[in-house]
Nucleic acid binder design. Structure first.
Lengths: 340, 340
DNA sequence: ATGGTGAGAGAAAGCGTTTTCTCAACCCTA
DNA sequence: TAGGGTTGAGAAAACGCTTTCTCTCACCAT
């Protein structure tokens, strides 16, 4: 099985092949391919013909090396299976591809420990990175951010002025949500917590504490929950145990799990217990009853993130940081508090 | 703002910097970094120290160029917003990252026209590619497949023996589904079609025709539908118009849209009309009533696809092509046919 | 002593581009 | 007709690595 010298070989053609065929120098080929005007029309045509005949196109790798840019953007998300991040990824990907950029995704599987290495490694292959690492400790984030530049942080406040960010204002969103159920007459609430160490969970807790502090007539319990269906599902007992009339779930997924468990147990929603989610994932409106939630425009969030990396990439100062104030979408899963 | 020659510069260190600091040659540094044993222990230690001090790690770009491999896999999907492809992407990504591989995603936005260029372009930056292009004409697919190798095709039959593939057997799945509603007594069905030119739609149609041919007592209408919520939602009229007692939707998304529209119009599911989906996306079980569907293990599908590229990448012959026979999951959206 | 061996390390080639540098030829003007 | 300015194209350096090739030196057996 020696390398027989068969006339045609399967190796992808290089610039040298084109140069040889067109009987010009490498430089000329390069110039033609990059649209430099400083080349004779006849020669240019010859080069183009040769390139076409050979099916040549420049190696992105070699090009990246010399140009110092890869035309690729890294994105780190905690969980590719979560609709929230899927949405952001989509918005990002759309924006990027529009500008001829490629997207490298890395899924950290919610393991905060891996995020650092994952991000740094991914970043090295790209021109910039969008980081979504809700569980990473603030100090660690602050530490790696400079190594990652150009970087934009998504879904949390990076806590540094020099790093653009786009995120939902979970605190204000949850405050609105609390007000919503309060207005419906609920006075005993329960918050089904997300990951304890997640920034967005802390934001929500802040809203809860503030709301509790400013409303003496309301009681808010906090029980452990999580970020997925199952977490919400298995928290049903503790929710019921509190005797609260309204359950504020960390997100839509948990809310849906809870809703399901409650319904199975014969608890009527919203007659007995009101339930709220967070994010307004595409499916939130299709549950029974449809889920009341705080809408976060995730795809737009991704799009805005792209806009900011793009600015950074072009040496421009990105637009102001964006903090989306989630909007409460009142649907069927919340109703008036049952008469005591 | 000239480039002042400040002692410390922010440029990422190269192998030359490490060599200089350790007072050895480039070759030695390279050898140490790649774990070659043929280097003196003392020297090796010096190199490691220097690398650490400088925070050096080899440029993946330069490395890729010389090694001829990028440690990256391209994935082309028709729609990042679709749970089916999200699942596959996830399975793929998990497998890849386990082997230190990165994943480049490209979303073709269901535009068959773009898929070709997208795939070729993405492929050039990677060592291999997983292609999911349901709408691409068979001839075009057949034409570009050789250019893409190593490649594995997902979600459709590539029609060439030399290209590994992993896909769901839509035909058998739909046949089972038809049998399911038939067994429930339904004799007048309506198929809510997907994209006309999609391979998986043709597979389903084949099942329909066959079923119709072998069961004279059953009538199956076909109406235009689509692949998303809205498509299903807006097809409600034509579905009702047929007078069928069971609607077979192209996929879960369309089924959910249809379910929603029907419910709004006071049509009871499944008392008046039974509805079935396809894929068993995570949310299918949370509709009201829960959706009867044919389960396709999308994540596993992605995982298997990875296994096959991985084999290809290592010069091994990948395992047999896999065709998952979807399993009907009977849930609440299908019931006995109403008495005529 | 001496030629052979083998280990360890540096020099240099090569990966496929882009771009600066250099040079030859041409045209114009004095 | 000579000199200066364009214009166009090739040679070569650079990007940051890996790996082959080459060389030196120490060691061992003869």
């Amino acid at each position: 099985m020696g390398k027989a010298k068969t006339g045609v070989d399967r190796r992808t053609p290089t610039i040298a092949d084109v140069a040889a065929r067109a009987e010009v120098s490498l430089s000329t080929v390069s110039r033609v391919m990059n649209g430099s005007t400083t080349v004779d029309a006849a020669l240019a045509e010859r080069v183009r013909e040769a390139a076409l005949a050979l099916g040549y196109s420049a190696s992105p790798l070699a090009r990246s090396l010399v140009l110092g840019k890869t035309q690729t953007l890294a994105v780190v998300v905690p969980d590719l299976g979560n609709p929230t991040f899927q949405g952001a990824l989509r918005g990002l990907s759309d924006g990027a591809s529009e500008k001829g950029y490629h997207v490298l995704v890395a899924d950290s599987h919610e393991r905060a420990a891996d995020e650092r290495e994952l991000a740094i490694e991914a970043r090295r292959r790209c021109d910039g990175i969008v980081l979504c690492a809700p569980r990473m400790p603030a100090e660690e984030l602050d530490e790696i951010l400079p190594l990652l530049a150009p970087v934009v942080v998504i879904n949390r406040d990076p806590g540094r002025a020099d790093v653009p960010s786009v995120f939902a204002d979970y605190r204000s969103g949850l405050t609105q949500m609390l007000q919503h159920v309060y207005d419906l007459g609920h006075r005993h609430l329960v918050y089904l917590e997300g990951s304890e160490n997640a920034a967005s969970n802390r934001n929500r807790l802040a809203a809860i504490h503030e709301f509790g502090a400013t409303h003496d007539d309301v009681r808010i319990d906090v029980v452990p929950g999580g970020v997925g269906f199952e977490d919400g599902y298995s928290a049903a007992q503790s929710v019921v145990g509190t005797g609260a009339t309204a359950a504020i779930a960390f997100n839509d997924l948990a809310a849906m799990g809870l809703l399901n468990a409650l319904t199975e147990q014969g608890v009527r929603v919203p007659q007995d217990v009101s339930i709220t989610g967070f994010d307004d994932i595409p499916f939130a409106r299709y549950t029974t009853p449809p889920l009341t939630t705080a809408a976060v425009p995730v795809e737009e969030l991704g799009a805005q993130a792209w806009e900011r990396v793009w600015a950074l990439l072009n040496g421009r100062t990105p637009a102001y940081n964006l903090s989306f104030g989630p909007l409460v979408v009142a649907r069927g899963s919340t109703g008036p508090a049952p008469a005591a």
